[in-house]
Amino acid sequence: MVDLLLIVRLAGRRVALPAADVEAVVELEGLTPVPGTADHVAGLSALRSRVLTVIDSWSALGLEDQAAIGSTEAIVVPSGGHTYALLVEQVEDVVESKGKPVPFKASPGPGWSRVSSGMVEAGDDLLLLVDPHALIAGPPLEEAA
């Protein structure tokens, strides 16, 4: 059951994330690359003396070509004892959901089906509900390698 939804723009789409999963919305200052890791790990950044692992959400979706280069807008998501920052194009709003998520009526498109389990009604729109933890996990191993 999702109460509040965070609406962000990602890879040209408006999508919703459960606001309960999101700790903060930040503007990242500086990025330390981490060589030798999977593509969707953009690097490290610091937030109030905490180290954030920055996730390149576009790579995580397998949609590198739609990446918003230089975006510093990120949502902070704690997951599995670590804190991540998911880069997005733009954070729009927080809205109340109008109901339970519903399964897709049609395929949401490549990349998206892995990070989303359904649609959710927010405001006047029906948006893809994205699981931030799935974004953090990144593409399956063989793709990441």
Binding site: L44, T53, G80
Partner: peptide, 20 residues
């Protein structure tokens, strides 16, 4: 975990200048 998977790093820290 995604960083540890590289097998090259033992952890992260913040330098005095605040950079990771």
């Amino acid at each position: 975990p995604a960083i540890m998977a590289a097998g090259l790093y033992a952890g992260t820290t913040l330098a005095d200048d605040g950079r990771p």
